[in-house]
Amino acid sequence: MKPLALTLREAPPQRLDLSSLVPHKLTGKTAAEIARIAIATTREPLTIGDIFMIRMGDPLAIRIEGGSERFDEVGHGLAEGEIVVDGDVGLRAGRLMTGGRLVITGHAGPWAASGLKGGTVEIGGSVGERLGGPVPGEVAGMRGGLVIVRGNAGERAGDRLRRGTIMIEGHAGAYAASRMIAGTLMVGRSVGPLPGYLMRRGTLLVGTPPEASSPTFVDCGVHDLVAHRLLAAHVRPHSRVFDRLLKAPLRRFAGDMAAMGKGEMFCPPA
């Protein structure tokens, strides 16, 4: 069956709350009913029909043709099915997803995959700060699922990550894996200052040795671990960037000793 397609008519005049565009909220609705769904975030009313042309199809496969950094909350709470955005998105894409697959071909803003519980988020471009992280008031960030970022990530990627795997093929900003509780964050290229800042447990893997590492990460030597083979097998279907990195022995740093100190950072031996 054909996907349910929404084609952007013109650049949106205000930020949009697109959290309604998920399969479980669209199933059983007609095109006219979908067109009437309110998506405004200001006092100016706005509906889906104002912004998008709708081509009806299977709501388990939603395709948004055209993107904007004003598209907020795309794929909020997605539980099953697939959403593909052919373009950029704004804040909190894929927040609180429990299943299914969200694909964004362009860039995503801050808090992408925030609080993710399950499913897969794939972002073709780069993401803003706090990838997978908690919003204010939440104790933990992402707690399951898989995130793939083909480009770069902003500061505090994987903030308070609790479970699940994040792959960033490019660079990550400062404080990658900050306050990490557990889980796995992988960065294909370099990271900014103080990676793993106050991480308690969990695994951070970086493609190049960090330039400014915290003194509270302690060198545990170079090791070739079986766990790296399992990790490589786990991520290989989604990204080939980490294959080469995980094949060779890696230097292990334990930290952050300023927090619990049960976490680890791996990087190629310099």
Binding site: G164, T165, T203
Partner: peptide
């Protein structure tokens, strides 16, 4: 206390530090 829990997809592993590296 040095055990490390790792969930990769649906599978759950434990990593135990031992004298030749890790027992998975």
């Amino acid at each position: 206390g040095w055990q490390i829990s790792k969930r990769f997809g649906a599978r759950h592993f434990w990593r135990l530090p031992v004298m030749d590296g890790e027992f998975v």
